[in-house]
Amino acid sequence: MDIPNLNYIKELSGGDKQFEKKVLTILIEEFPMELDRFVDNYKKMDYKKSAEDVHKLKHKISILGLVNGYHVAVAFENELKLESNSLYGSFMEVMDQIKLFLKKVNPS
């Protein structure tokens, strides 16, 4: 299993700490909201909206360097579009990883 990391963000920043701080601040702010939205829609069994939520979360997964997690999200999004949900557990494991990581990370 891959581990969330800031390699991509640091590579883009080229040492620009302001940029790193801004990206992390947005991630910390938006990720829980987007995840909550997904969970709500999933509970309502609105798979179309859930797939859109996963699509949006997918970018954050990739920013945090989770290559396998990203593949899980891509497969899960496609699955949801077909009204199927076998990858829900795997996807939520990735979400839990990110949740934990963002709790520990300090944007400043």
């Binding site: 883009l12 920043s13 620009d16 940029f19 801004k22 990206v23 947005i26 991630l27 938006e30 949006k56 970018h59 954050k60 920013i63």
Partner: peptide, 15 residues
């Protein structure tokens, strides 16, 4: 882009 992170990244890349 509807994603704020994505907009920020493109802006940074344009720098």
């Amino acid at each position: 882009d509807d994603d704020a992170t994505a907009r920020l990244i493109v802006r940074q890349l344009c720098e």
